[in-house]
């Protein structure tokens, strides 16, 4: 075994080790953003939807509901226009928050012609947008914090 061969084996081994790390990071990458084919599919899906008479600019449409404060901070919910989100302590709520100041079915967030609307479902301690307590369903925009008990939620793109 000549020194040169051993040298090459050594370098090959290190390269293989790094290849492993790069592949591992690749696995996480697709884990976070979905497989590469997802983009093509998504583009196909959005094509027919655009032909529908949705007047609002799609670019400003939120994609996710994010919990920014409270025990569930960091949790993300994907939004879909057909599916209202019920927030509360009840087991069958879409987002179950373990918060002493929240009611069983506390509030609802739903989509109305591309606008997202928050509605208080008669909770004891109220739902707040900023400092203002909700008295009737109210539209919210991206990044506007909605507070329920100790939990703060907001829409994200």
């Amino acid at each position: 075994m000549s020194d040169l061969t051993l040298m090459l084996i050594k370098l090959a081994f290190l390269a293989v080790l790094w290849l492993f790390v790069i592949m591992a990071v690749g696995v996480i990458r697709t884990d976070l953003f979905g497989p590469a084919t997802g983009k093509a599919k998504r583009a196909q899906k959005s094509e027919p939807r655009r032909s529908k008479p949705v007047s609002r600019g799609r670019r400003n449409e939120p994609r996710a509901l994010v919990v920014t404060k409270g025990p569930l901070a960091g949790t993300t919910l994907n939004l879909s226009a057909s599916q209202p989100i019920v927030i509360g302590r009840a087991k069958d709520a879409t987002l179950v928050i373990n918060d002493d100041y929240a009611s069983g079915r506390h509030a609802r967030i739903y989509s109305d012609n591309g606008r997202w609307i928050v509605e208080d479902l008669g909770s004891t301690n109220g739902t707040y947008i900023g400092q203002q307590r909700l008295t009737r369903p109210q539209p919210i925009g991206v990044g506007q914090p909605v507070r329920i008990g100790k939990t703060v939620l907001e829409l994200r793109k």
């Binding site: 492993f20 592949m23 591992a24 696995v27 697709t30 884990d31 979905g34 960091g74 949790t75 993300t76 919910l77 994907n78 939004l79 879909s80 057909s82 599916q83 989100i85 879409t94 987002l95």
Partner: peptide, 19 residues
């Protein structure tokens, strides 16, 4: 339905096998 915490419900077992 439509609920997912930040991790999507995908299995990805083949990626694991390769690794």
């Amino acid at each position: 339905e439509g609920l997912s915490t930040a991790l999507p419900p995908v299995k990805r077992r083949n990626a694991e096998l390769v690794m």
